[in-house]
Design a protein around this nucleic acid. Structure first.
Lengths: 338, 338
DNA sequence: TTGATTTTTGTAAACGATTACTTAATAAAC
DNA sequence: GTTTATTAAGTAATCGTTTACAAAAATCAA
């Protein structure tokens, strides 16, 4: 007998399988005496209830799947970490769905719930990974799901994020308050919703300050360090250079700084640089990076909490929930030159 | 009827459930005609086989669990990413087990396999997360498992890593070749096997060069940036300062650099700094960091490949497998001052 | 055509738990 | 000491697949 099942335990303890089951799921429905008797056997033989058996019967896998574009990105890693914690302490396990930005893989992972392999979805992409096939889950009968850190264009899904528009607006205003008027934006890919929101906030701030947005000052990067370097090089070739560069994530800001320094510029005396995210390294680059802080842990834990609520059967109002951002003023930004 | 099962499909297609099952698992055992008939129905109604049902019957969950101390660490994140890819393309899903270094959580995740929730383990810690209870899996009948990037003190487990001893030895020799004789080591926590191996390599190189190891030059850090700063401050207070500081990971090296620069030292003219890992940011800090490159993707893919082999029933020789490291010489190291 | 093969299909018993529902045991009430 | 209420335990069906094994259908040889 390779591995013991609930019936074996029942036999050994001279009770019915139902009782053994209750020892785990409803211990106060079984008398002290039998409880101890059964527990003793369980310990002795090292019995572990088989999850597949119970999952099949209860129709709950005990898994949730986190669909993220790239676990290598410190922002995602930070969020996932909080998620994993929250899930684990609620008895759930998390399936990692690193999609590398591929829609196909997003769908693959979303399918885990229709296969009964996961009970809910934590989504960090800006697409809804369901075919709009009438037979498959339609909007209105979405599986338990929360969308984090990105924006999905649907008012039927629960969303958790920082208010990107407000955040970049606030941050841009800060640059303006330092006297900057020629403020460039290094954006993320234009198909990423959050990047567009950030652009919007940036434009709003300029408009409010009566500064007309120069389209040459808006460069699209790809959210990685190298692209920051490339964008910086483009900006430096402009006849009228910017006095401040607002990068929509920290990686690009680091790239921008690296490039500027290589060209002999001193930050922030010649040019100010600002980032977004406040990844761990932001405070350790030289000069330390002024950036918009995202509360990664809080984002993650809010996402998992809202999902767990849904899994418990509570209804969670769809719509956006904003978490507070914070502008971390450090040494990479300063007054406009002369 | 909320969701359709294999019997419903069978009924709709006028075949037996067995045939429907075979459509998925052994399509060439069913005639073209019925194959198409069944497939058509499946498409029409959007049937998805329930994984729990089949898992229960086949005793395979289709999951593997990755037990790692911290997903937030770029080294781990890089490895996990490769793992996830390999797993996914073999039809497996990966359960994320971020343990935050807690033995209790390591065990919790290892238990997933005894619960039938996972088929194998990818372990990135230096403890074997099984109680040595005779009833539980003993050594010798370990579950399919591979230990990555860390060392486990057992010759029964499959291990994949860079040869830490050789790597630090090589790197230290490089510093020696630059004329350095007072070379400090900022190690990781002493309960982490890989850190001890790195220390060993460092000592070996010194010994070979006839330099006696000064214990004041060996400071234990905790693998994070802040601890790099702390260690640097200690080193600077020494009457005889080191001319080079070898940090056993990049984060600490970044901390060391930050601190030195804050104190007005110029790197590498006054002091050389070297790291280990070659995380992405290593090349973008200023000056760019000389460091030992670990092939993260290869580590991850090797781990998952070896695990998949075991899951397919092939026997994999236990013991260590070394992957090649590479010293990336950049701008943070230079000749010993005058 | 007939029987021997081979290929397709069907039947029914698992897999390991949970849970209505029923029965037995115990406690409470009078 | 009955009867009734309460609590504890058991029975057996069920969750959705897979898979030996048996049966039927198709193919082939003579």
């Amino acid at each position: 007998m390779a591995i013991l099942g609930i019936k074996d335990i029942a036999a050994l303890a001279n009770v019915s399988p139902a009782t053994v089951s209750r020892v785990f799921s409803a211990p106060d429905m079984v008398s002290k005496k039998t409880l101890n008797k059964v527990k003793k056997i369980i310990d002795e033989v090292g019995y572990r209830p088989n999850r597949m058996g119970s999952s099949l019967r209860t129709r709950k896998s005990g898994n949730i799947v986190a669909i993220i574009p790239d676990i290598t990105n410190p922002v995602n890693a930070g969020i996932i970490r909080a998620i994993e914690q929250g899930a684990q302490s609620a008895g759930y396990s998390v399936l990692l769905g690193d999609t590398q930005g591929l829609e196909e893989r997003e769908q693959h992972y979303a399918d885990l719930v229709s296969h009964g392999q996961a009970d809910g979805i934590l989504l960090f992409c800006s697409r809804i990974p369901f075919k709009t096939d009438p037979n498959l889950p339609l909007l209105g009968q979405l599986p338990p799901m929360v969308n984090g850190n990105e924006r999905i264009d649907s008012d039927e899904v629960v969303q958790v994020a920082v208010d990107n528009v407000a955040a970049t607006m606030f941050a841009t205003e800060y640059l303006i308050s330092l006297g900057h008027k020629r403020i460039a934006a290094v954006t993320g890919p234009s198909d990423i919703a959050s990047s567009n929101e950030r652009l919007e906030g940036y434009k709003l701030a300029l408009k409010d300050a009566g500064i007309k947005a120069d389209s040459a000052f808006q460069i699209e990067g790809s959210y990685d360090v190298q692209s920051g370097m490339d964008c910086a090089s483009q900006l430096l070739m402009l006849p009228q250079r910017p006095t401040a560069i607002f990068c929509f994530n920290d990686d690009m800001a680091i790239g921008v700084m690296k490039f500027l320094q290589k060209q002999g510029f001193v930050i922030p005396d010649d040019i100010s640089v600002m980032g977004f995210d406040d990844i761990n390294y932001a405070q350790f680059v030289s000069p330390s990076l002024t950036t918009v802080h995202q509360p990664l842990h809080e984002i993650g834990s809010t996402c998992i909490d809202l999902l767990l609520k849904q899994l418990k059967g509570q209804v969670v109002e769809p719509g956006r929930r904003y978490l507070p951002f914070e502008l971390k003023v450090r040494d990479s930004t300063g007054k406009v030159p002369e």
